[in-house]
Design a protein around this nucleic acid. Structure first.
Lengths: 220, 220
DNA sequence: GCGCCGCTGACATCCGGCTGACGGCCGACG
DNA sequence: CGTCGGCCGTCAGCCGGATGTCAGCGGCGC
């Protein structure tokens, strides 16, 4: 999962980054509105945390521009001014959630997870695919009720697939969301990762659609 | 689907080519404005990605010449970050979308799909033809609600037919768009492909107009 | 009824994707 | 500080599905 954090105060940005990173996200930070707009327009994020008070370009404007450009990833607005009208404005501009400062990192993570769940069209916080249960909260997985020990990358790959229902996800997209955009590796790292995952969760769970990508389950 | 990438920087061009190819496109690359103008004038593209900073002939001029010659395929302008005036100029010259550098490949693909959808006069990425539903986003097809497993080429052929409403598409045109112009193969590869497709989606869905080509459905 | 275009099933080939092995890197631990 | 073990990217070779080719058949249009 890839997240964009828009926050001008470096210390706060770093706190959020750390929390998200610990929760298994790849994080980009945009320190001002202009960078934020650009990054959100150009990169492929799963979610954005957006501070409203920003230099260069106001947070609400950033959000509106994203939405106008059909950038539909979930956005959580974070703001110091606990203003009620502001909240409404945020929602109207296309925000999916609102969090007043100061806030607990735990709450932020929880809301992020909730939004991702909704975006994936799932109700429960524990995703189930066949005999496999994936708990993104605890970063654990169970096969037939038996805990499976997964490495961080393995888990994130599995988690990303689980959040992309009924869709084949290409190796390129996976690399993008697991590593971030920077490296255009044309290696078989993803294939190797998938192989190791299959060895742990059973070969049948991850289907390869030749020429398209990977998906969980086998229908479709 | 066939795309023209106009980009003088070989590495960038290659990245774009790879991404488009992974998304199921046949890609031609034009390294300068002159080549671009010629290729767009002579070949039959479904979309073009146009860099503005070009040797020989400026990108905007290329676009204007295409439009002046009634070459109406959608064009996405790609340009170094920042300049609003440039963006306006681009739109005025007949561009359909604008993307600042650097950009995320996934973003490019999404916009390309959006434009093609609009070009086909549809709102959704899911096309329905008789009992068949084609989702070009997920690259899946369903027959009466049952997923059909198609190979990459099969899917692209089907997708192309679906985007050519009520029209017979010749084998030559199909070969052109599935493989690229270069090879003037006088083989029956397309026929074989169609045969395999028919076996999977039902013979009635793809009609042959003897001497003209193939079309989806049977009316017209 | 004739001829040609197009269809099919079989076969060859080719390429994407899988695997097992290897080694670098890094953190844990003595 | 050295060693150990786990994680993970890279390599090379293999496998099987995907796709082009061929040859023969069939039916559509004249």
């Amino acid at each position: 999962m890839r997240a964009l954090v828009v926050e001008d105060e470096a210390a706060v940005a770093e706190d959020i980054r750390a929390a998200l990173h610990a929760a298994g996200f790849v994080v980009d930070i945009a320190p001002d509105g202009r960078d934020a707009w650009f990054a959100g327009d150009v990169e492929d994020y799963d979610i954005a945390i957006l501070d409203l008070g920003l230099p260069q370009l106001d947070g609400l404007s950033v959000l509106k521009r994203w939405r106008a450009a059909d950038r539909l990833f979930p956005v959580i607005i974070v703001s110091a001014r606990g203003d009620w009208t502001e909240r409404v404005e945020g929602i109207n501009a296309g925000a999916d959630d609102y969090l007043g400062k100061p806030f607990e990192m735990g709450e932020l993570i929880a809301r992020v997870r909730g939004l991702l769940r909704r975006a994936a069209g799932r109700g429960s916080s524990v995703l189930a695919v066949g005999p496999l249960r994936i708990d993104s909260q605890r970063m654990t997985a169970e096969l037939n009720g038996v805990p499976v020990r997964l490495s961080p990358l393995e888990f994130r790959l599995l988690d990303y697939l689980a959040h992309s229902p009924a869709r084949a996800v290409s190796a390129m997209e996976l690399a993008d969301h697991l590593y971030g955009a920077a490296d255009t590796t044309d290696s078989n790292a993803i294939e190797a990762l998938v192989a190791r995952l299959r060895r742990k969760v059973g070969a049948g769970l991850i289907t390869t659609r030749r020429g398209f990508g990977y998906m969980l389950g086998d229908s479709g």
